[in-house]
Amino acid sequence: MKKEQSVSAIKEGTVIDHIPSNAALKVVDILDLRGIRSIISVATNLTSRTMGKKGIIKIGGKNLTKEEVDKIALIAPDATVNIIKNYDVKEKIKVAIPTTINKIIKCSNPNCITNNEKSMATKFYVIRKRPLKVRCHYCERNMDKEDISLL
């Protein structure tokens, strides 16, 4: 952990690494970390060999669900999620954009049934990963990365 000295090590929890620097706070938001009570450290503008500048988030005592990992992939496609047990990296997950995205993004078409029917889950097919392009399962519209907003 030497190269990450700017942020203190955690005993149990999750370290999300290789986040684009400008997306680190966004990841805090989509994972809704502001509300949780354990230790969270967020670092941005760290020097990275591969990315230039990067961000890291460390969350004490929390494991991410698959949905949360998928959400991270949408805004930080190169991120890695490290599961920490007793100060050691127990597992390293490379986030990946899934082939279908359920629930976590909103359709940009105001006339789509998903934006009108009460408590309805969204579903999208990924038709291109980089840059991200998805098609709504319901209204069949395509959305580019800049039109995608998270629920």
């Binding site: 006339n111 789509c112 049934i113 009108n116 309805m120 399962h137 209204c139 069949e140 519209r141």
Partner: peptide, 28 residues
């Protein structure tokens, strides 16, 4: 037939009987 796009797809998911789309908004 329904003015919202994607309504027929949702109807098909709700129904065990076959659904025929006669127009869902500007979609199909």
């Amino acid at each position: 037939r329904h003015p919202l796009e994607g309504s027929a797809r949702l109807a098909a998911e709700a129904s065990s009987k076959p659904i025929i789309n006669a127009g869902d908004g500007a979609n199909q």
